[in-house]
Simulated scan of single mutants.
Amino acid sequence: MKRLFYIFTILLLLLLGGCAPENKKTPPPEAGKLPVVVSFHAMGELAHAIGGDKVDIHMIIPEGEEPHDFQPKSSDLTALSQARIFIINGCGLETWADKAVEAAGNEQLAVVTASDGADIHYVEMKQILPGRKPEKQADPHVWLSLKNAKIEARNIRDAFAAADPDHADYYTQRYMEFVQKTDALYARYQLKFNTAPSRTFVTGHAAFAYLARDFGLRQLSLTNVFASGEPSARHMTELADACKAAHVQTIFVENMESPKIAETLAQETGASLESIDTLEEGDEDETYLSVMEDNLEKIYTSLQES
């Protein structure tokens, strides 16, 4: 009966996911390496930073797809059934994860919620129905804080060491190196931001609240943290006025967002557009720290222009 339940759940997930065709079968984990599944790119970067060449990583959400409403494919469930570790960000980002784990039926699988223990920022949502109190939801972009990234890396280190004790020292060493580099990057930009003539930067959606909090900056955005809906005419007018008052010269567009609305704001304010990376997609030539350094440098440069 239990096996029939798993089969039924897998079929249900495939139906919810639109029964997308598979181009190829999931290869088995590489022999001698810890099989790890991650939800999306940022978790993969952190997993590689800690696991190095001792882990075999399968990423569920393809590059360029949003993690919120994604549904796993059969190849992803196969990978979960073969894995020892499944890393998710948490904070309500991977709403599909529980069903996927249940469908995989892997009793040896350890699920790591990387954001556990991080200092979570909560966003007050607008009231929807009369008589209901405003609700608060967790901002899921935990990984875009250097401070919180160290906590996520520590959770990953602990999980790797528990699942693969023979290489625990290796994981700990890589974790310590990651922490040292992260602290150095934070210290360098803390000094730079402290001398910046402005504290305000503008993004497409409010994904950088953690980064802004880390460095005492002010983030303005076209849409909210969940990038839901399009901004109202009133919001666009107020945002344009705020940009002019703060002498904002750069509007940042995230790598997975359409630039059309940002272009409208740029035309209204005389600002230019610049890309910024949320680490929801990437390539092999980048690392977590290299992307974050690039983001910080771009934001710092924009503050010099204000």
Score class of each variant (00 low, 15 high):
Q173G: 13
I128T: 14
S74L: 15
A79Y: 05
D183Y: 03
L217W: 07
R84L: 12
L34Y: 02
M256W: 07
E281N: 14
A103F: 01
Q82L: 10
G270C: 03
D277L: 10
E22I: 05
Y189Q: 04
A184C: 01
G204K: 07
L265A: 04
E254H: 04
D139K: 06
K136C: 07
A49K: 02
Q173T: 14
S306E: 08
A162T: 09
D139F: 08
S145H: 02
K2G: 15
V111P: 08
L265C: 05
V123M: 05
K244W: 06
F5Y: 13
N89R: 05
A168Q: 06
D283K: 08
D69S: 13
S275D: 13
D98L: 08
E257N: 14
Y186F: 15
R157N: 12
G44H: 04
D241I: 14
K298N: 04
T113F: 03
I7T: 12
E107Y: 06
S275P: 15
E281L: 14
S145R: 00
A262P: 01
K24F: 11
I261P: 10
L77F: 05
E284R: 14
N295R: 00
A233G: 13
V55R: 00
D69C: 07
A207N: 05
R234F: 11
D116A: 10
D139I: 02
E45K: 12
P72I: 00
M43I: 06
Y170V: 04
V111M: 02
F178R: 00
H235S: 06
I57C: 01
G105T: 06
Y210Q: 04
P72Y: 00
E22R: 07
G44I: 03
G204E: 09
S221V: 08
P130F: 00
D166C: 06
Y171A: 02
R154S: 13
M236V: 11
R188E: 15
D169E: 13
V112H: 05
T9P: 11
P165T: 07
T95M: 09
A240R: 10
N148M: 02
M59Q: 15
I120C: 04
G17C: 01
Y6F: 13
R84V: 05
E263Q: 15
G204I: 05
Y171F: 10
P134N: 06
P231N: 03
H68N: 06
P165H: 04
